[in-house]
Design a protein around this nucleic acid. Structure first.
Lengths: 208, 208
DNA sequence: CATTATTGGAGAGTGTCACTATCCGAATGG
DNA sequence: CCATTCGGATAGTGACACTCTCCAATAATG
């Protein structure tokens, strides 16, 4: 039940120096001290360690971002209200806002069509504007047309995400599960898009 | 029409030393030499430079991967058959295959339900197995249940992607446009998923 | 109880990556 | 004509994610 660092390392597969590094960076809480310089680690440390590794390796998140996320997890043990925004803000890579009037207008029009709130400071909206601006600069002036179809698909995806959380999460684990579902979901969706593209183009070629 | 490196830098916003770096790494073809140590750059260099920046900044791709992609672009100027796979293989981060029997079986079952080909060596399939394996290790044993819904949404997305390419691409630019649509699409989809999640959870809260 | 191994913690070191800075001698260009 | 700018090559920088080395204190073993 309570183990020391060597066993934490061997059961998780994470090298001891790396665990020490995570401890220094605050990604992992300290163990329970049993003496002046001894400590033991419990089930929650192993769980946290696996989460950190998943966020770093599968999600590609930086140590700094993972640090913010676990801080949020620790802070909101019982505050489950409006935590989605906090999680998203932590996960979103902070895009420096681009200054592109056209892209702004296209995204605003898209959000209006959808009936979605247009919060200009929202990281997701900023990211979207950045993508559209880049597309325009590359000569893809119809790229914004894709957004409506993408949005529709993502409404379905978000509904599945919420169902998944409601069905599978114990109340005190919703926040952590939301992080996991979001980050692993991103990776899964990316892979699935590749597979679906291949199938779709195979279908197209077969028709010819 | 033909400019030297300083003007290429000022019109693209990319610093001169960075352009030189890209030339060294083969991300950008050399300019047309006009003397022993002078060269001029044309429209295609500016276009390529903007593409490279988009892949690096929006797509988050490494210089090495961008190098592979532009090599593919240069090689397949006329070979547009079966290029999707090449592009995908270049874009996919090479996941070291994980050894997880359960995850393997779950992904295989999912692919069978979908009627999708199960190529064990496919990077997208490997990535998917990796994600499911990670989810299982984190205690999310129902994560694979999400895949069916995700896949359905991605079929719609892939259809839009192909429509977009068919409608908007000149035949000799399909490959480059495919790269752009794939990489920018990934970024856009990620942002849209966040927005859709927020809307969906706002809807849930409103019902309470 | 003696001795060998391991511990937590702190500091410095490593390898990689994406640039960035400096030099050089050869062209420009006003 | 002569300061600028050029291309090209070499070396240096800063951020990042570890990884190594040390230390005195503790634990495990015989």
């Amino acid at each position: 039940m309570s183990v020391r660092i060597a066993e934490l390392s061997s059961t998780s597969g994470v090298p001891v120096p790396t665990i020490k590094y995570y401890l220094r960076e605050g990604l992992l809480p300290s163990g329970e001290p049993t003496g002046r310089n001894q400590a033991v680690y419990g089930e929650e440390h192993l769980r946290r360690l696996k989460l950190v590794r998943a966020l770093v390796e599968v999600g590609g998140l930086s140590i700094a971002v993972v640090g913010e996320i676990v801080a949020t997890l620790d802070a909101s043990a019982e505050v489950t209200h409006h935590v989605l925004g906090v999680v998203q803000r932590s996960i979103a890579p902070v895009t420096p806002p681009v200054d592109d009037r056209d892209a702004d207008a296209e995204v605003a029009a898209f959000l209006a069509r959808r009936g979605w709130a247009h919060m200009a400071r929202d990281p997701s909206v900023l990211a979207l504007v950045g993508v559209v601006a880049t597309a325009n600069r590359l000569g893809h002036h119809r790229f914004a047309d894709l957004l409506d179809g993408y949005a529709e698909a993502n409404v379905a995806i978000a509904r599945r995400d919420l169902d998944y959380l409601v069905l599978n999460s114990k109340p005190d684990e919703v926040v952590e599960d939301m992080v996991v579902a979001t980050v692993l979901g991103d990776a899964a969706l990316k892979a699935l898009r590749r597979l679906a593209q291949r199938e779709a183009s195979a279908g197209l070629l077969a028709e010819e």
